[in-house]
Design a protein around this nucleic acid. Structure first.
Length: 274
DNA sequence: CCGGTCACCTGAGTGC
DNA sequence: TGCACTCAGGTGACCG
């Protein structure tokens, strides 16, 4: 599900609701959703206060007191849901519950994930760095400069679309925003990334920045079930290529073509995108 | 080493 | 209606 704009939206909305709140209690309803054993997971989190909620690539990062951390990858269908603390019945597809307290107030944050691909990880002091090094994420797709893009893209083997999806090259692109950015930059997803000129990379960088920022303004794309804590996003109304195979290209009218690159469905205009 | 394929899951949509 | 089949925003393991 979430790519950079959806993860950014979730982090912002979670921050607004949970900053300064304490994790009073943790329940895990489906053990495999936690990367470690659930006992050490709950032990690491219980009693900590939430200092910051941010995004690292597509990961959601809760910074907790005493150098403790909660890192969540939402994969295809992960999302957050506020509801009542589960007595016996859990809300549908919710696999972990965090009872949060702030002075006399109380609320419960649920991790919800229909397809159960997502993973939650807790870290104690010094452990987060090791994990992030292991992930080896490239520069953030939104924060990186055109020079960063150029250095990363031109020094990588493979088709442009596959390279954009590789989180160790640039962190944050997924299938939607890769297709949308390539369409806007008039670059073929099938091009070998290393053949891009500096001008082409600068243009791709500019288009990607514009699209990712606009998507964040729209609170992400809701294609099927994606919801941020404050509800669905609306950037799907601005998609020009993703999900539009068979429809006319908005630039030239030629039919948009669907193919498969890096195992992912890819839509592009064979006339505009060179 | 590399690209391609599958596995992990569930639900929605489609066609018979 | 119902069933079989395909596809989905991601990534990591495995294979030739």
């Amino acid at each position: 599900m979430p790519e950079l704009p959806e993860a950014e939206t979730m982090a912002r909305e979670l921050a607004a609701k949970t900053l300064g709140w304490k994790i009073a209690e943790v329940l895990v309803n489906f053990a495999p959703i936690v990367a470690s054993d659930w006992q050490s997971f709950t032990d690491l989190l219980t009693g900590r206060e939430i200092e910051l909620v941010k995004r690292i690539g597509k990961w959601i990062h809760f910074v907790l007191t005493q150098d403790h951390h909660l890192l969540i990858h939402l994969k295809m269908t992960g999302q957050f849901h506020f509801d009542a603390w589960p007595s016996s019945e859990w809300p549908s597809h919710c696999h972990a519950a965090f009872r949060l307290t702030h002075q006399s107030q109380e609320q419960t944050l649920f991790y919800k994930d229909t397809r159960k691909f997502g993973r939650l990880r807790a870290f104690g002091p010094g452990q987060l760095e090791i994990f992030l090094n292991h992930l080896n994420l490239g520069p953030d797709a939104l924060l990186a400069s055109a020079k960063d893009y150029h250095e990363r893209l031109v020094n990588t083997k493979g088709k442009l679309k596959a390279v954009l999806l590789d989180q160790t090259v640039l962190a944050g692109f997924g299938n939607i925003y890769a297709d949308e950015s390539l369409f806007a930059a008039k670059l073929s997803p099938l091009r070998e990334a290393k053949t891009l000129t500096l001008e082409e990379v600068k243009n791709l960088h500019g288009q990607a920045q514009r699209i990712l920022k606009k998507a964040i303004d729209c609170r992400g794309s809701t294609v099927s079930s994606y919801q941020a804590p404050e509800g669905a996003g609306s950037y799907q109304d601005h998609h020009k290529a993703y999900g539009k195979a068979g429809q006319p290209c908005p630039h030239c009218g030629q039919v948009l073509v669907k193919t498969v690159v890096a195992g992912r469905s890819t839509v592009f205009c064979p006339k505009c995108q060179k």
